[in-house]
């Protein structure tokens, strides 16, 4: 049994851009996530401080969940934009 890609699709040349963007956004999120872990381990009492009607622990925790969604949408926006640009370029190249 061959073990190539699961389905055929056209490579549009946007892969490098998407990979670079993905790594940058991953590093950004990881820094924010690490901040959450560090506060918990170095100064856990800070997590009890009130922020916007809740404490920092809940604010930061739910914030991490919402941030993941927001960043996912931003990532998809730029990836889709680049894919369309490359598709247009490829179309013009074919002509």
């Amino acid at each position: 049994m061959e073990h190539g890609p699961s389905t055929e699709w056209k490579e549009d040349g946007s892969s490098d851009y998407k990979a670079r963007l993905g790594v940058k956004m991953f590093v950004f999120y990881f820094v924010i996530y690490s901040g959450f872990i560090l506060i918990n381990t170095i100064n856990p009492k800070l997590m009890g401080v009130e922020i916007l009607k809740v404490n920092l622990a809940i604010f930061y925790g739910i914030g991490l969940i919402i941030l993941a969604l927001v960043m996912a949408l931003i990532y998809n926006h730029f990836c889709t934009k680049k894919e369309k640009e490359m598709a247009l370029l490829n179309k013009e190249g074919d002509k």
């Binding site: 890609p5 699961s6 790594v23 991953f26 999120y29 996912a72």
Partner: peptide, 18 residues
């Protein structure tokens, strides 16, 4: 899921079959 989305999703789709 951030790791899955930003780092793994598309390359895994390209490289694998089953």
């Amino acid at each position: 899921w951030i790791v899955a989305l930003f780092v793994v999703a598309e390359p895994m789709k390209k490289l694998g079959k089953y």
